[in-house]
């Protein structure tokens, strides 16, 4: 892209003065490109180039140190298809995404319905529910590691207090439970976002229809299921898609709480990629794994765009 900064003022003024302003102003595009330059240059070098380079790296056996990147064709992809840990990680991601999305939506929807009529204290409740969302994942991870701590954590103490000592355990150390324990922390942290989106969308729900349904004898659940939910369809789709994207990219909470362990029982695609690329220096194979995330994210995003094009949600 060449950038020239011509003196365009007279021409621009003439155009603006003579014709009605078109949808696409045609004057002084050199200046437009100059405005784009700082963002465009940084973005091209540090985002677009690495994105393309990762495709190339996935076709090599590079270890990050060799001067030559040896081209190995699709060998990494073949290896991935036979890599048991890759499939396990992907399976964990699917559990994470399905359970995490369902749990987050259910709680967020319940809370949004409870504050629909804007009861006294609405702002305070909203502030509290949204708070975990603004905190660093590290803090959420540490707080929850404490909750799960077998020696002094709240969870075991609470179980003992209600006579369920036998349930107490090292939650993050148990390969059968660790994934769900970390997921619970992640869900806790993301309920706030789904909640505020639902709260905003509920303001646009037509309450006349609900009154009409009540007159027709629909009970509370029927009114929710058949009158409210259809009107929230867009918000529900949006939240689903957001949670799906976040779910497939999940990294921070897992890394802080378990680093993928014990016995790889909390290994997700993102943590497995990080481990391969940066701890075991299998850069080529790591890039191959990262492409899986890229493809999944693109598919989910294209789905969003489709949905968004169908109808815009107004706030």
């Amino acid at each position: 892209m060449t950038v020239t900064v011509p003196r365009t003022r007279p021409r621009a003024a003439r155009r603006a003065a003579t014709g009605p302003p078109g949808r696409r102003p045609r004057r002084g595009h050199g200046i437009s490109y100059a405005f784009l330059l700082p963002a465009g240059a940084l973005y091209a070098v540090f985002i677009l180039y690495p994105l393309a380079e990762s495709v190339f790296l996935s076709l090599t056996s590079w270890d990050g140190a060799q001067p030559e990147k040896e081209f190995v064709g699709l060998a990494n992809f073949e290896r991935m298809l036979g890599d048991e840990l890759f499939w396990r990680s992907l399976g964990h991601n699917v559990v994470w995404v399905v359970l995490g999305t369902a749990a987050t939506m259910a709680v967020a929807m319940l809370l949004a319905m409870l504050v629909w009529s804007r009861p006294r204290g609405f702002t305070a409740f909203r502030t509290l529910y949204f708070m975990p969302q603004v905190l660093p994942a590290v803090i959420v991870g540490i707080v929850w590691s404490w909750i799960y701590n077998p020696a002094f954590g709240i969870l075991n103490r609470a179980l003992e207090a209600v006579g369920l000592e036998s349930w107490a355990r090292g939650w993050l150390g148990d390969p059968d439970l660790a994934l769900y324990a970390v997921l619970a922390a992640a869900v806790w942290a993301q309920i706030g976002l789904a909640f505020v989106i639902f709260t905003a969308a509920l303001q646009n729900v037509d309450t006349d229809l609900i009154d009409a349904a009540r007159v027709d004898g629909a009970n509370a659940w029927q009114r929710f299921r058949n009158v409210v939910v259809p009107q929230l369809a867009n918000a529900i789709t949006l939240v689903t898609v957001l949670l799906l994207t976040h779910g497939f990219q999940a990294f921070d909470h897992v890394w802080i709480m378990t680093k993928g362990g014990p016995d790889d029982s909390t290994q997700l695609i993102a943590t497995y990629t990080y481990q391969k690329a940066f701890m075991e220096n299998e850069v080529g194979y790591g890039a191959t794994l990262s492409l899986v995330l890229t493809v999944i994210s693109l598919i989910v995003s294209v789905a969003v765009v489709r949905v968004r094009e169908r109808e815009r949600i107004s706030l």
Binding site: S54, Y274, A277, F278, V283, G286, A287, S297
Partner: peptide, 23 residues
């Protein structure tokens, strides 16, 4: 150009981190 920026929202950081690190 806008499409190129949009691409950056769609893909996660993990998609670019490996080559970016070496860059």
């Amino acid at each position: 150009i806008f499409g190129a920026f949009l691409l950056g929202i769609m893909v996660p950081f993990q998609s670019i981190m490996i080559p970016q690190y070496y860059l």
